[in-house]
Design a binder for these strands. Structure first.
Lengths: 124, 124
DNA sequence: TCATCATTACACTGAATTGTGTATTGAAGG
DNA sequence: CCTTCAATACACAATTCAGTGTAATGATGA
């Protein structure tokens, strides 16, 4: 079995052709989106994309929040399998396990911009 | 006003090149993802993609939930600007305002599948 | 107008989440 | 060994949210 880093999402059957999401599948997916359903986590993830191998303190500075709060959220992201860590001296660095989550964030951002434009057009 | 369904998201600057999300922007985006951070809403949206112009009762049947609960969630989706409604007799039909949200769901689903495969490979 | 059914509004309960404050762990350096 | 600082664990208070049960609205048909 080839050891391959997934950076793109494999093409799958479109939504219309899939059987209705089971409760279990829907629950998994909901937990995934829930990761991105927080302004704090979104900003942390964005900071991670922008910075090069930052450690926790860097991220706390970037989002201007207390280390405890940032550590809490980062731990959630690690538990979810979104991020991974490695120590360097007394500092703990964070990095993405899979960049797909960033792509998802990007898609959401585009959609949000679209919605804004749409509203401006239709509502004036 | 031309009746046009927007189905593609405009290309934008990649995440790395954008300034760090402001609290406001991050909040908007978080609310967007929060819509998809619920197994019930995901299944309702999926049912909407699969069915042709369903009304509330259809959707309640599809997800096997009480009409009140379904109506609550649908109302949230309408308030968010994700769905729109039109009456047909005593029935209220729901449809997407913009299919981008479905694309986002699709991306999330792919990512979830990928993560599963990944886990199977690395953890055995 | 009246009866009936579909849909929605409203108040409520239980569960989950976030950031805070405090205490603890862990590593670097004298 | 001891001090110092980074990072985390833990309990707590405030907030948010989903589904339930009941009541109200709205349309259909006699």
């Amino acid at each position: 079995m080839p050891r391959k880093v997934t950076s793109a999402c494999a093409p799958k059957a479109p939504l219309e052709e899939r059987p209705l999401l089971t409760l279990e599948k829907a629950g998994e997916l909901a937990r995934l989106f829930d990761v991105l359903a927080s302004d704090t986590r979104l900003r942390l993830l964005h900071a991670l994309v922008r910075m090069d191998d930052p450690y926790m303190g860097d991220l706390a500075d970037a989002v201007d929040m207390k280390p405890q709060a940032v550590s809490n959220q980062l731990r959630r992201l690690v538990d979810m399998g979104i991020l991974d860590t490695h120590r360097h001296g007394s500092h703990v660095h964070y990095h993405f396990v899979d960049t797909c989550i960033a792509k998802l964030m990007y898609h959401g951002l585009c959609l949000n911009d679209e919605a804004h434009a749409h509203r401006l057009v239709s509502a004036g």
